[in-house]
Nucleic acid binder design. Structure first.
Lengths: 223, 223
DNA sequence: ACGCTCCTGACACGTTCCTGACATTTCGCT
DNA sequence: AGCGAAATGTCAGGAACGTGTCAGGAGCGT
């Protein structure tokens, strides 16, 4: 499923956008300020970012620059207040892909999101990680050619790891992304699910080659 | 350039559509009532017509019939108000190619326009999904050669799944596309209709081979 | 009035998920 | 090198959840 991150401090607007994007079938994440937006973008690597320029903590320009400096290349659709031409110029230099001036029509936003994603190229039908194949359009996973049945949580967990491109994902991040909690981790929930994933995906679950433990931090998915 | 004619009396909607179709690269013409629409269609012979049913001067049905009587065979996408089931049947008999129930998502309209134009080449070709055959021009479905009678909702549901080319369609998307609601799903409506579809389309409804459940998300139509 | 379609809520069933207890491994420290 | 504490692996039971199924009833067109 295509994932969109909205970075917008106006709660009503953010909520409205999320609703409508979700109806269109996107998987939507929302951040309420610039710092949080940058963090979530780096963590979850969405397919597209809708970025307001006026933001608390860290304004849109800095977020955009930080994103690009981090090597993230997903399209960014910038929301700008009316008539701030100079913003456009400045933003374009920093690597925004499209602009929308407030107030804007919802249909226009949806059309632009769609256009940007199309221009960015259709997402690969199936990504390959070692001997694993993940097809997000059907939420199905194969190991060296044969289908593997994953429970919803297991699939979500795998995706959370796969999205990080081999980097470590902390327990806290997993809790937030997969479980939607923000609490610290005290139970064995994550470990249990990792174990189950290993049982299903690894040749030798005792000697995992893909889902690796990073002690005191979390897990990572080696490609 | 591909030319699209919009026949719609609601100016806001018409302009919104025109804007977005133009962004997509179409050459768009707009007519504000039925008589004007018929005239422009005959004069300019667009590649596709988007036709509202409720129109001043001459309603959509009469426009459609007049078009077909005149030997014009371009695909026609009909816009119909919610819950006017009989309109669908009536329109289909007159030669419409696809339906969209208001309120509809813009992306859905764009997708259907593209789909219709793509199909316009090999015209009236029935699509084949496994042992199923769907003929949209007659809203009829066959399973391994013999006709299957589907209720309107069942057919719409099948189409919504078929349009996604094997990918998962979430419950929310189904609610929106087939039922025109945008609310969260709490009742068993979707499941019941899926069950009925399976009963009619699957050899063994208990072990569906085409209409698959994707737990916690929705359903998908395997080809 | 009849039949068809559609929606709804109740129930059944299997799956999934979480939790806490216990086992094992890892690593810092002496 | 050995010890102990902390972190992780493993397991099983029960609760919670999601879906399949059904029957009843409302709505609509014939």
């Amino acid at each position: 499923m295509t994932r969109v991150l909205i970075v917008e401090d106006n709660r009503d607007l953010a909520y409205g956008l999320r609703n409508n994007l979700e109806i269109e079938g996107y998987d939507v994440d929302v951040a309420g300020d610039g710092a949080e937006g940058l963090g979530r973008a780096k963590a979850t690597r969405p397919d597209l970012v809708v970025l307001d320029l006026m933001l608390p903590k860290m304004d849109g320009f800095r977020v955009l620059r930080a994103l690009r400096d981090d090597g993230l290349t997903m399209p960014v659709l910038v929301l700008t207040a009316r008539g701030e031409e100079s913003d456009k110029v400045r933003g374009l230099k920093l690597g925004a892909d499209d602009y929308l001036t407030k107030p804007f029509g919802l249909l226009e936003l949806l059309a632009r999101v769609e256009a940007l994603l199309r221009r960015a190229g259709p997402r690969a039908a199936a990504e390959t990680i070692g001997e694993l194949e993940i097809d997000r359009s059907t939420r199905s996973v194969m190991r060296s050619g044969s289908a593997v049945e994953l429970a919803p949580k297991e699939y979500d967990l795998l995706i959370a790891l796969a999205d990080r491109n081999g980097a470590v994902v902390s327990r806290l991040e997993l809790m937030r992304q997969v479980w939607g909690y923000s609490d610290a981790v005290i139970t064995r929930t994550i470990d249990t699910h990792v174990a189950e994933l290993r049982r299903k995906l690894e040749r030798d679950p005792a000697q995992p080659r893909h889902i690796l433990t990073v002690r005191k931090v979390g897990y990572r998915l080696k490609r």
